[in-house]
Design a protein around this nucleic acid. Structure first.
Length: 957
RNA sequence: GGACGGAUGGUGUAACGGUAGCACCGCGGGCUUAUACCCCGUCGCGCCAGAUCGGCGCCGUGCGCGGGUUCGAAUCCCGCUCCGUCCUCCA
């Protein structure tokens, strides 16, 4: 241990050193800025929002591009129910990236957001709240409450979208429940009616006999239910030609055997379905022969308690067209083919009642069978059904089974527990029932082909979107437009009071439309039917003059399909265009909004309403499961915003490939916030070093820039171009990655690091420092603009600190033009080699550090030995005085023939024939610039600093 | 079941059919003139060596699996697995 006195002496020397340092520190141009390193986005973002609101940013942006080429992104309306979730946030943020970046690319990019207001989820909420009172509540009152509910969430969501930084016309969004919009819906319907697209047809739906209403899938609860289980035989009609052709004439008493859990549907049986590709066996049991699916023969024989003998077998396909006799009535039941026949339950011969089952209905359609639905609203058999007319269908199960047994048609009977649909409200079991609905034809006037050719003309991003929607359109059935609901736009059809004939008349629709334009769609419910009927209106079928109003409303998809008309076409300010430039929604909208909009537009306007369609994936949780409220795995955007800020969420959405589904996990946010900090500090560093720079006065012309600066500028411009190109292609993840890499690698790790010495120690207003500042100023202003669409809050905040003249908001500026981003390719090529050499120098410097011979690189110097091209190159670059700056060393020894004994040698692998020698730099450390110099003290005025520093402060101190 | 996607290190994202790269995280070191910042190294696991360059073992080796085409495939082809969307009156 050193004696005490010695220690004190050391201390005092250290302090002296410190004083000296402090003295010269004042002569340095260290970075200075008030732009905080710590973002505090949670606090600052609302302040930025307030400023935008005050300056009316959106309106200013529009004004700034008045008369410029438009880019119209048409907003797909989110549903006005509940709070914004991550998926909606992703959608709106991507839209905002586009609106802002198209604006900055020079387009006039209006954005009118909207909401989908009608529909089930809201009605569901309201009717649930009404409970028992629902039946006594007039429909207009239910609709009023729905409207109120929608209104509430429109304002909730509007606030949330604004908080995300989404810029747009929030003062006049469109609502599908506005009078104007509702009238536009009827306007579209009117066009379709006139053109002959609309017809009335049948469709099977879930029906609650107790509530006497149709149910949506969301209102259906699946729960255990004990059903009957019966096996019933259907005799093949004697002398049936198809059967005869099978060559099975010697089999006695051929029957098809079916199994069902709903005996009450037997009266409506019209067919028996078999699988075309499966094998069926003809099994003799007792007096009869039964057609059974081979795989199920043992099970069935066991169920009916009879031994059997296989006599023959046939493919299901061969059985098509065989005619059987109905076991209860003198009627046929024909054998048909269906893919949905399964091999795990029943007999492989499926009882088919087209009026009472989904699959049955489709099969019935396909085979042209009657959609026979002899059951009324209350679930009672109609007069059409002998012996059971008026009976509740569930009550009829036993008597029907009994009748079948009595006639010998019943082979076995039991009970079965299985999952069965129930009514969400009254909890009673549901029936499936075909009902009359309004449809839009898809094959009318060649519409389907026109849809397909329109699809070809649209740009789909990503490209496979085209195949997806194409295949959907290719096979989609007619569009069922009616819904047995309250909350929507009514279908202004009328029913003849006398004969029940339904009529959808253009004149009536037109009257309804006009009244709706003035007072909203409620008019259909409030006004007398007579006000909608033209003079002398009579039933086309029976001539009756008394009518009842249709109570069904339009599918809400029809509402949103009309937005291209209601919003784009009827825009009162003429900001928007038809068609628009882009629709942007999640991939599920290929079936949804993209498709319905296309159908309505093509049918009523003859073309697609969009030029391009961009789709994104859905948000998944960490286990790659879809985020949904029912799974309880949702992360609310607010959570992210409250903790990190909207810019972080936006950055995250920018960083991922949105074309695929996006897995969203908490641990994604940490690294993201880190990238953000990197970018923020890069910006802060530039701000700090421009505190005394005014481009107007101090900028250096490009040709006079130092070579390093010219290289950095060129390199920067090249990447800036790449980023702008990525914006043009809507590849925000490419923007993000290029941007972060540019900040971290090109700027922070190289240019800024190397530049420090010059910025801090060179003469404040000397050409060397001004040269660097000129480039920094260009970089800063460009960088902020490039990042503005993705980080609008931070970019704006930083913009406020940029010294010198600037626009009021970064969001009122444009991306730099190509000319402003000049690239000197030969310089870049040359510097690629410079940087390669630099990397080779850095390696042995690290070795010196490890040996504790140096701390900072400035404590070292280096030389080289080389042969070939590289040798001349390094010499040549050295003559321009570039090496010490680029490697941050004190001086440069040049070519070394005999390395000093204390030098560290590094033979390069990357650059052939190159060896680098590094060693501690000679001389003393200049307390001002920290470089080592042998000439310290040569200057009389400043005996303790190096000549360069003495020069730098000559006119100052 | 059908249509359409997705599957690269802890995370995100790249690579004309020819060395698996970049950023972030983590870990180690340096700087204190970007002062909770910045720089460098490392980053499948383990071991050895040492002025420096490094060496060895094991597993991975394209991280969904298995085949094929090719001198050579992450990249092209085929089959399968898992996940997602749609086919459903949720929007």
């Amino acid at each position: 241990m050193a004696p005490l006195g010695r220690k004190m002496e050391l201390l005092s020397m250290a302090e002296q050193e410190k004083d000296k340092k402090a003295l010269y520190k004042d002569t340095l141009a260290l970075p200075r800025t008030d732009f905080p390193m710590k973002a505090s986005l949670v606090r600052t973002e609302p302040q930025v929002l307030a400023r935008w609101n005050e300056m009316r940013l959106y309106q200013r942006m529009r004004k700034a591009r008045e008369g410029k080429k438009k880019f119209v992104l048409h907003d797909g309306p989110p549903y006005a129910n509940g709070h914004v979730h991550l998926g909606t946030a992703l959608n709106k943020i991507l839209k905002d990236f586009i609106v802002r970046s198209r604006f900055m690319a020079g387009f006039d990019a209006p954005y009118v957001p909207g909401w989908d207001c009608h529909g089930m989820p809201i009605e569901h909420q309201i009717t649930k709240a009404l409970g028992e009172g629902l039946a006594a509540t007039p429909s207009v009152e239910i609709r009023r409450q729905c409207r109120e509910y929608a209104d509430k969430f429109v304002s909730v969501q509007r606030g949330e979208f604004i908080r995300l930084g989404v810029v747009g016309d929030w003062e006049r969004p469109y609502l599908t429940m506005s009078h104007q919009y509702e009238a536009a819906i009827l306007g579209a319907l009117l066009d379709l009616v006139k053109a002959g697209y609309i017809y009335k047809g049948l469709r099977p739906i879930h029906w609650c006999a107790t509530c006497r209403t149709a149910l949506a899938e969301a209102e259906v609860e699946y729960g255990d239910h004990e059903s009957h289980s019966i096996y019933v035989k259907f005799p093949v009609r004697p002398g049936d030609k198809r059967w005869g052709a099978l060559g099975l004439g010697d089999l006695r008493n051929p029957h098809f055997m079916i199994w069902t859990t709903t005996p009450w549907t037997i009266p409506a049986n019209l067919a028996i379905a078999v699988h075309p590709d499966l094998e069926y066996q003809l099994v003799e049991a007792g007096e009869n022969t039964y057609v059974l699916l081979s795989d199920l023969v043992p099970d069935v024989l066991k169920a009916i308690g009879m031994p059997g003998e296989v006599k023959a077998s046939r493919k299901g396909r061969e059985l098509e067209g065989v005619v059987c006799r109905h076991p209860m009535y003198d009627r046929d039941s024909v054998v048909i083919l269906a893919e949905y026949v399964t091999v795990d339950t029943g007999t492989g011969c499926v009882h088919t009642a087209p009026g009472f089952g989904a699959d049955d209905f489709e099969s019935g359609r396909k085979y042209g069978l009657d959609i026979y639905t002899p059951v009324d609203e209350a679930g009672r058999f109609t007069a059409d059904v002998p012996r059971y007319a008026g009976a509740n269908v569930f009550d009829a199960n036993d008597p029907i089974a009994e009748e079948l047994r009595a006639s010998g048609a019943l082979l076995a009977r039991g009970r079965i527990m299985h999952s069965y649909p129930h009514c969400w409200r009254c909890k009673n079991p549901l029936i499936f029932r075909a009902t009359e609905q309004w449809f839009q034809r898809i094959d009318h006037e060649g519409l389907r082909e026109r849809l397909l050719s329109e699809i070809d003309g649209v740009k789909w991003i990503p490209p496979w979107g085209k195949d997806r929607i194409r295949n959907m359109v290719l096979t989609r059935p007619d569009w069922c437009l009616s819904r047995q609901r309250y909350w929507g736009v009514p279908i202004p059809a009328v029913y003849c009071a006398k004969c029940g004939e339904a009529t959808l008349d253009a004149r009536v629709v037109e009257r309804a439309m006009k009244a709706t334009a003035a007072r909203g769609a409620d008019v259909w419910f409030t006004d007398a039917i007579g006000t909608f009927l033209p003079d002398g209106f009579a039933c086309a079928k029976c001539g009756g003059a008394e009518f009842k109003k249709e109570e069904d409303i339009l599918d809400v998809w029809f509402d949103s399909s009309v937005s291209q008309r209601a919003v784009l076409e009827e825009d009162p300010k003429k900001d928007l265009t038809w068609p628009c430039d882009m629709y942007l929604e999640a991939t599920d909208q290929h079936r949804g909004w993209f498709q319905v909009s296309l159908i309505t537009a093509a049918a009523t306007r003859g073309a697609a309403p969009y030029r391009a369609v961009l789709t994104h994936g859905l948000i998944l949780d960490e286990k790659a499961k879809k985020m949904s409220k029912s799974l309880g795995n949702v992360i609310a955007p607010e959570k992210v915003i409250e903790t990190y800020g909207a810019d972080i969420l936006r950055l995250l959405f920018a960083s991922v490939d949105y074309t695929a589904d996006i897995r969203f996990t908490k641990d994604m946010i940490g690294p993201l916030a880190e990238s953000y900090r990197k970018v923020r500090n890069t910006i802060r560093y530039m701000l700090g070093n421009l505190h005394d720079f005014d481009a107007g006065k101090d900028a250096v012309p490009v040709e006079s820039l130092l070579e390093l600066d010219r290289f950095a500028l060129s390199n920067f411009n090249m990447k800036a171009r790449r980023i702008i190109k990525a914006y043009d292609a809507y590849e925000f993840f490419a923007v993000y990655h290029s941007f972060v890499e540019l900040c971290a690698v090109d700027l922070s790790a190289f240019y800024f690091d190397v530049l420090k010495d010059r910025l801090y120690t060179a003469r404040r207003n000397g050409p060397a420092r001004r040269s660097a500042q000129t480039v920094l100023d260009h970089m800063l202003r460009t960088l902020l603009r490039l990042v503005a669409p993705i980080l609008p809050f931070s970019a704006e905040e930083a913009w406020g600190y940029v010294p010198g003249a600037r626009e009021e908001s970064v969001h009122l500026t444009a991306f730099p033009s190509a000319e402003a981003l000049a690239v000197d390719q030969s310089l870049l090529d040359e510097w690629r080699r410079v940087l390669a050499v630099r990397d080779e120098v850095l390696k042995p410097l690290e070795g010196l550090r490890k040996e504790k011979k140096i701390g900072q690189s400035l404590e070292a110097t280096w030389g080289f030995a080389a042969d070939g091209d590289i040798s001349g190159f390094i010499d040549e670059v050295g003559r321009r005085g570039i090496w010490p700056e680029v490697t941050v060393t004190s001086g440069w020894m040049g070519r070394v023939s005999e390395p000093a004994p204390d030098a560290l040698r590094h033979r390069s692998e990357a650059v052939e024939g190159l060896t680098i020698f590094v060693k501690r730099a000679p001389g003393a450390k200049c307390p001002r610039c920290w470089k080592y110099d042998e000439k310290i003290g040569n200057n009389a005025a400043h005996t303790d600093i190096c000549p360069t520093c003495a020069e730098a402060i000559a006119d100052k101190a």
